[in-house]
């Protein structure tokens, strides 16, 4: 099975389902992805600020 035949069968499956089912899956996955990215970004920002504050304290 080539990539394009797999892609076609995926799209055929998606359009054969009721639109609200597809909307539910899209919303669910987007929400989980955005929430994860928000958590990771918050962690990265806090880690950077913490390192800056620690190095500033060391410098006095």
């Amino acid at each position: 099975m080539t990539f394009f035949s797999l892609w076609n069968s995926v799209l055929e499956r998606v359009v054969s389902l009721p639109a609200l089912v597809v909307v539910a899956y899209a919303l669910f996955l987007c929400a989980l992805l955005l929430f994860s990215l928000w958590l990771k970004r918050e962690g990265t920002t806090l880690r950077r600020e913490l390192q800056r504050a620690l190095s500033e304290r060391e410098r006095g």
Binding site: F35, L39, K40, E42, G43, E49, L50, A53, L54
Partner: peptide, 24 residues
């Protein structure tokens, strides 16, 4: 598993924020 990962990550973030506030 996702909820556990997200909660552990949030736990880490809150701990870092608390440390940062104590430093500042």
């Amino acid at each position: 598993f996702f909820a556990a990962w997200a909660s552990f990550t949030a736990f880490d973030n809150i701990s870092m924020r608390t440390r940062l506030q104590r430093l500042l």
